[in-house]
Simulated assay, not measured.
Amino acid sequence: MKAPLFLLAAFALAAPAPGQEASMDPGTVGSPEVTATALPPVELSVAVDKAEVTISDQLTYTVEVTAEPGIDPELPEFGEDLGGFRLVDMGAEGPTLLDGRRRWKRWYTLAADLVGTYVLPEMTVPYKDASGDRGQVKAPRIFVEVKTVLEPGTKDIRDLKAPEALPSSPWPIILLAGAAVLLIGVGVAVVLVVRRRRRRPQPPVPPHEQALEAMRRLGRQQLLEKGEVQRFFFELSEIFRFYLERRFSILAVESTTEELLPRLLGLAELPAPVRERTEEFLRQSDLIKFAKTVYELDELRRLAELSYQIVTETTPRASEQEGRG
């Protein structure tokens, strides 16, 4: 069995300073000793964990962005153009700190229903630096081959058998003909049903279901018990803000708390008590993430439970969901 093949593409738009030459790898035999060039302000990489899959397989598509402090990349929504794939699941991490740079990560679980060559489209991430100048980084498209699950050498069409002698009575022929017509009718009906189901778009996962499941997965990691408090609240805050953005159609993931709170005030469907608890969670999370404020374990668990309660209490009612649909 072939080992999984990983495809990784990383592109960043960053030009060297005037007069500066691109550095060579000091570890290359016989290469001159030169100084290493600085990292670009924003780096984008995309990858799939398998280059070849079968119809019964799923693959994971990963997007990772790193940026210097003060730069705000605008990660695009992935889902409108899947290159023919079906979206099964998705998740997000970050921003986290890695070697003095901010890091965002998105992952998507995809599946294919038909055999063929699929192309995940090119991705572009615009950004704005601290001085207000805008730029963008790109990652190329990725090709994935979807193959059949039939074993090698298997024949779809069997060889013809020798003709058999017809019976003297016509009734066996009539019964066989009737059974054949019935089987053909059933086969046509099955094909039509399968085609309709394949053409029917998969309904998106509701924001509250996606957020609650992501919170449960994060809780099972037991990061608070392991002392990884900052990492826990970075990921929990990202999940919570992503929920607010999808649930209320406001910009939340890439906004600061001070930018987000006025937008919450304008939401008629967000009661004042829930809005106050939302503000409490956002501000306390910021203190833990950036000011490294120390809380007792019970208080940390209470804040985590508070985010879970807010999502539960703001879940749309059935009538509201039907109205939106």
Rank of each mutant, 00 (worst) to 15 (best):
L97I: 00
D49Y: 05
G135C: 01
R141A: 15
T257S: 06
P207Y: 13
M123D: 07
L87Y: 10
R197C: 12
E164T: 01
E228H: 02
D129N: 14
A162M: 08
F281R: 08
G116I: 09
E254A: 07
E322D: 04
E259F: 04
I288V: 15
A268S: 14
I310G: 11
E238A: 12
L175H: 09
G100Q: 03
V205I: 09
W171T: 09
I71M: 06
S255T: 10
W107P: 09
Y127W: 14
F232L: 02
A272V: 15
V46S: 10
S307D: 02
P271M: 06
L287C: 02
E225H: 08
R103S: 13
E209Y: 02
L110G: 13
D298M: 00
V65C: 08
L175Y: 12
T124W: 05
S319T: 10
Q284P: 11
V115L: 05
F85K: 02
E280L: 10
D81C: 10
E245W: 01
V149K: 04
L297N: 04
I250L: 12
P121D: 05
I184D: 03
G132T: 15
T28E: 00
Y127H: 08
R275S: 11
P207C: 13
G91I: 07
E209D: 08
G266R: 14
P207W: 11
H208T: 03
V115Y: 05
Q20F: 06
L244E: 10
G153M: 13
L176G: 02
E80M: 03
P167S: 12
P271K: 01
E279L: 03
L223R: 12
F248Q: 14
A112G: 15
G323W: 13
D159E: 06
L264T: 06
L303V: 01
K138F: 12
V229C: 01
T154W: 03
K226D: 00
P18F: 07
R277V: 10
P69Q: 04
L176I: 08
E238K: 10
L267P: 07
R263N: 09
E122A: 15
S168I: 14
S31Q: 08
P73C: 06
L251T: 09
E245V: 01
S237V: 06
R263C: 10
E320C: 04
